[in-house]
């Protein structure tokens, strides 16, 4: 049964058409000469030029990038710690509350997370700006990181760590030399997830940003509310392009790594014989 039946062919074709045609249309119209998005008036790259000259967009992109790098890095550290605690630390006081606080932000509606953080920041008199967005993004993305990392830690052979400890490693060395290299792929994908979540977030950033710290999604949202504009199409095309290259590159890298790992294992098996 390795041939696709006509039904499966049709459903896959229609399904992927549904997923991709809207984005293709978006990209096509970013090269439209006319300001009216719905009328095709010939090929042009002028909207990209205009985008590069638009200082407000460039500023917003810079703020977004800063927030994403900072928050995803802190979130990766905190999330990995949290995952380690959840999987390895056994019982401790308030464990149930801790695991609840890790899973709750995953299902919390963004409007509520945003509202509650804003009320906190106002309550303690913290001025809203890049820092408050970083705090907010770190909080929800560390939970995603911890879920990704702990799923790797669960399948991890604990005896490797114990062997390192028996051979004279301190716990910190055992973590750095044995655990970290093994869970590294999960940590990296956790960081990537946190990074994209931060780049993408509109709702929580709208609640926690100040007037001088507009992020790209906030800027896009306020522009889009006024209707479709070719400049936004150009910006979207750039973003889609970056993501596509990133995802394809990552999947190719993991694929070659897998192939290499398999080859190494085969080689090791052969030398043992």
């Amino acid at each position: 049964m390795n041939r696709l039946s006509w039904f499966n062919t049709v459903s896959l074709t229609l399904g992927f058409a549904f997923l991709y045609i809207p984005m293709v249309i978006l990209v096509i119209y970013s090269f439209n000469e006319s300001k009216l998005v719905t009328v095709w008036a010939g090929f042009s790259t002028k909207w990209y030029g205009q985008l590069l000259k638009d200082q407000a967009f460039l500023n917003a992109a810079w703020v977004t990038l800063k927030v994403a790098v900072l928050s995803s890095t802190i979130a990766t550290v905190l999330g990995t710690m949290a995952a380690y605690v959840m999987v390895r630390s056994g019982r401790f006081f308030g464990r149930t509350l801790f695991s609840g606080m890790i899973y709750a932000p995953l299902v919390m509606p963004e409007v509520i997370t945003g509202l509650s953080l804003l009320l906190l920041f106002i309550g303690i008199g913290l001025d809203r700006g890049v820092m408050t967005i970083v705090l907010a993004h770190t909080t929800f993305s560390m939970c995603y990181v911890s879920v990704v990392v702990s799923s790797r830690l669960v399948t991890f052979d604990k005896s490797l760590e114990e062997a390192a400890l028996d051979l004279g490693c301190t716990p910190a060395e055992a973590f750095r030399l044995v655990t970290l290299p093994i869970i590294a792929p999960a940590v990296v994908s956790g960081w990537l997830l946190a990074f994209t979540l931060s780049l993408d977030d509109l709702v929580i950033a709208s609640f926690t940003s100040g007037p001088s710290s507009t992020t790209l999604p906030i800027k896009i949202f306020s522009a889009v509310r006024l209707g479709v504009s070719p400049e936004i199409n150009a910006l979207s095309t750039v973003m889609i392009g970056i993501v596509t290259v990133g995802v394809i590159a990552t999947s190719l890298i993991t694929k070659t790594q897998k192939v290499r790992q398999q080859r190494d294992e085969q080689e090791a098996a052969r030398t043992q014989e």
């Binding site: 896959l12 992927f16 997923l19 991709y20 809207p22 984005m23 249309i25 978006l26 119209y29 998005v37 719905t38 994209t196 780049l199 993408d200 509109l202 999604p217 896009i220 949202f221 889009v224 209707g227 479709v228 936004i232 199409n233 979207s236 973003m239 889609i240 993501v243 596509t244 990133g246 995802v247 394809i248 999947s251």
Partner: peptide, 29 residues
């Protein structure tokens, strides 16, 4: 196929919603 399903998930949510405005509007595609 799996990668093609996940790819849109990494693309901005806002942009994916925005794409439909140009398609569904009265003089849309």
């Amino acid at each position: 196929l799996m990668m093609l399903i996940i790819l849109p998930f990494w693309t901005s949510f806002l942009i994916r919603v925005y794409a439909w405005i140009g398609i569904l509007s009265q003089e849309g595609v």
